[in-house]
Design a protein around this nucleic acid. Structure first.
Lengths: 183, 183
DNA sequence: CGCACCATGTAATGCGTTACATGATTTT
DNA sequence: AAAATCATGTAACGCATTACATGGTGCG
């Protein structure tokens, strides 16, 4: 899947591995993420498969960089993947929920400490979607009018993130309440 | 993490790998899942680490089975993990959202087909949490009064699942609406 | 002076999936 | 007669993380 994420970004413009990481970090990170090392490995594989090409650009002030460009075959591969509907639910792995599930024998205070910490993290994430992500999308739309359609979809995915975090925070508050009063 | 999921279940009672798979499939599957082959491999590793022991029980009508029991060291290991708060957000990987993010050049009908399919899947999952999971928890609580506290936490995690699916369905409906009218 | 940023990559290890292999009993 | 359930495991492969390795520029 990382493969397609990289093709998706390169379909807008040629980029380095480092830049791809940055793009992911401030856009798809809440539904798809990767480490730099894995990005470099995957780019290499994509090049071997003929879905991207690369050239090394020398820079004077900074380290040389390898710029990747999507090929026609790469575009076809991406389009084919995008058009194929997902026929299953994405498997989830939520460590916090898993821990709570098995925590009945723990002391009340220990459980609460974990939930408070998560509540704070999710509040921060919620604020991020509302302020930072939202602003970035508005800016992209203003700067590149050709991307209006794209921005509509980005905004839809951002809203999903926002609503997910709202739900998570609400659920954590209710669960904290439950454990404080009726547990 | 699978390691701890298995210890968590074995902390209730001794079980086989096959049984552990079944338990996971109808309780933690929406926040933690695994394939049978991986469960067997992990059980073997747990035994090597001394966190579980196993004995083979012969059966006449059915294949022999290997029953795993948690050790004192295993219980300590589990408790230590449970008590340790999660200091980060669980990384998410949502293929449907990822696809939508890059789908601007797709035909409207292609996007809609994918969203409709997912909406149906999430509606089914929602119904499952409301009907099946909910019923299983009520039954466990009725049958084993000693597990009242456990059942409270199970119910909290079930509610998370239910609310998550409600959100997902609502978001899919809104996004379908958006693409039908303003895209 | 130290930290963050830019920039790329390899190696070791771990975790997970898919495929393979077997085989009796029970249900449809 | 076919499919599902019970029951366990190995092997090959793929994807991801962590650690290692390098090194210049810009900013506070």
């Amino acid at each position: 899947m990382l493969k397609y994420t990289l093709l998706g970004f390169l379909n807008y413009q040629p980029m380095t591995g480092y830049e791809l990481k940055q793009r992911m970090d401030n856009s798809t990170t809440h539904f798809w993420h990767a480490k730099l090392s894995q990005i470099y490995v995957t780019l290499k594989a994509l090049e071997e498969e003929g879905f991207v090409t690369s050239i090394v650009e020398a820079q004077n002030d900074r380290p040389d960089k390898r710029v990747f460009t999507i090929t026609l075959r790469g575009q076809a591969e991406l389009r084919q993947w995008l058009a194929q509907p997902e026929t299953e639910l994405s498997p989830k792995k939520e460590t916090t929920i898993l821990k709570l599930f098995f925590s009945a024998q723990l002391e009340r205070e220990t459980i609460l400490a974990g939930l408070h910490l998560q509540r704070d993290l999710h509040r921060q994430q919620l604020a991020y979607y509302r302020e930072v992500t939202s602003q970035m999308i508005r800016q992209a739309r203003a700067e590149f009018p050709a991307l209006t359609k794209d921005a509509q979809l980005w905004e839809a995915t951002r809203r999903f993130g926002e609503e997910y975090e709202e739900l998570y925070v609400r659920w954590l508050e209710e669960t904290i309440q439950l454990i404080e009063t009726k547990f």
